[in-house]
Amino acid sequence: MTLHLEKIEFPLQPDPVDVEGLKLLLGSLHFRHLDVGSCNACDNELIALGGPHYDMQRLGIDCVASPRHADVLMLTGPVSRNALAAVYETYSGTPLPRLVIAVGTCACSGGVFAGSYAVFNGAREVVSVAISIPGCPPSPDEILAALTAGLKSYCTLNAI
């Protein structure tokens, strides 16, 4: 089944807000990390998050290999054009409720690559982003703060 990217309108529409589903994320958050053109600094910070020093698993946060198992997509990198199909298929394959978190300045705004012919200027040009974590790279502390306090703030803002 061929994917016709030119027929899809980006940025993809945001999902309807599922308040009860979002509340569950505060206790257990399984994310799928997708590297869309990153220099891998942000990826290494995410790996450090899983290590013994920062240990995200003690908070119920875990990295999963399949987007089918994921609650959250962590995008790193400025979303290169070559990775657009991957973003679309990963995002489409993630069951609801799902959120997208942009990790790193590149995913927030394009970063050092902003304006390049080869990238979109950040994840917000492609999907609807729930939380953005600027930094080059953001330290694991910042990512943890976004996954705990930021998620709580997002849930409060959307639980109207």
């Binding site: 950040g122 939380i131 600027p134 953001p138 703060a145 930021g150």
Partner: peptide, 11 residues
């Protein structure tokens, strides 16, 4: 500080 995150994609 570690609270550099912000909600949403717009900066």
């Amino acid at each position: 500080g570690t609270d550099t995150w912000y909600v949403g994609g717009d900066d």
